[in-house]
Amino acid sequence: MKIAVVGGTGLIGSKVVKNLNAAGHEAVPCSQSTGVDIITGEGVGKAVAGADVVVNLTNSPTFDAASAAFFRTSMDNLLAAAGKGGVRHVVILSIVGAELVPELDYYRAKVLQEDILKAGPIPYSIVRATQFMEFMDAVLSWTSDGDIVRLPATPIQPIAAQDVADAVAEVAAGPPLNGTRDIGGPDVYTLDELGRITLRARSDSREVVVDDTAGMFAAVRGDALTTKGDARLAPTHYTDWLS
């Protein structure tokens, strides 16, 4: 199959392209660096024309209220081009539990992206992942003040980017789900515990203090960001990934 991977040069997209090509598909990475601008629409029609599947892995450059406009515009442009180009399956990557954290602008925007896809005319699949292991350094930096890192005791189920890419590639190569597949890492930690494990593994002497008002994840209630039911669990453990 020919599969256009929009956002195909990023953390997840580059791995998805590699997986699909290794499996014998023709996966084409599309991004601003290849002349595809999903916001202005420049190059989108040409990129998806003739593709059997389009995988959209683009992301908003901000996590604030402006993210909603990004996802609305990008999905409108992509679905219009995909419809004209004869695309038979559109795949996006979203977040486990996003609808349970309406206090966060970015999470509301991801739910909006899902809703736009569901309401569109093209068969679709939504892959929802838990928090990426690769983002832990950024999380630590948000609430770090000298020798102290303040983190809420929010349950987090970290998943490796490669495991996310494997799941997205599998779904892209299969029939449309016309629904959602949740994936998560094999272990659940509280965010403060995850912070301590990370700092200890890197011989970082900063101290983690529990502060349930600190950072973006302070808005999360209970175990909203962990998988439930028939979700698929990835094989990579955080401690193994760290090492």
Rank of each mutant, 00 (worst) to 15 (best):
G86E: 00
G86L: 05
V87T: 13
H89P: 07
V91C: 09
V91G: 06
I92K: 12
L93G: 03
L93E: 09
L93Y: 00
S94W: 00
I95C: 09
V96Q: 01
V96W: 01
G97F: 00
G97P: 01
E99G: 08
E99M: 09
L100K: 15
P102V: 11
L104G: 00
L104M: 10
Y106C: 10
Y106K: 11
Y106V: 08
Y107Q: 13
Y107P: 08
R108Y: 01
R108N: 00
A109S: 15
K110N: 12
V111T: 12
L112Q: 13
L112R: 09
E114N: 11
D115H: 08
D115G: 11
I116C: 12
I116Q: 13
I116G: 10
K118Y: 09
K118T: 11
K118V: 13
K118D: 07
A119C: 07
G120W: 08
G120N: 13
P123G: 13
Y124L: 11
Y124C: 13
S125Y: 04
S125D: 07
I126N: 07
R128I: 00
A129P: 07
A129Q: 09
A129L: 04
T130I: 03
F132C: 05
F132M: 07
F132W: 14
F132A: 06
F132Q: 02
M133F: 12
E134W: 04
M136D: 09
D137V: 12
A138P: 00
A138H: 13
V139T: 14
V139Y: 13
L140D: 02
W142G: 00
T143I: 01
S144M: 10
D145C: 07
D145W: 07
G146H: 11
D147T: 14
D147L: 07
D147F: 04
I148D: 10
I148V: 15
I148P: 07
V149F: 04
V149L: 02
R150D: 03
L151K: 02
Q157K: 02
Q157W: 00
P158D: 08
I159S: 09
A160I: 05
A160W: 12
A160G: 04
A161E: 05
D163C: 02
D163A: 00
D163I: 00
V164K: 07
A165V: 12
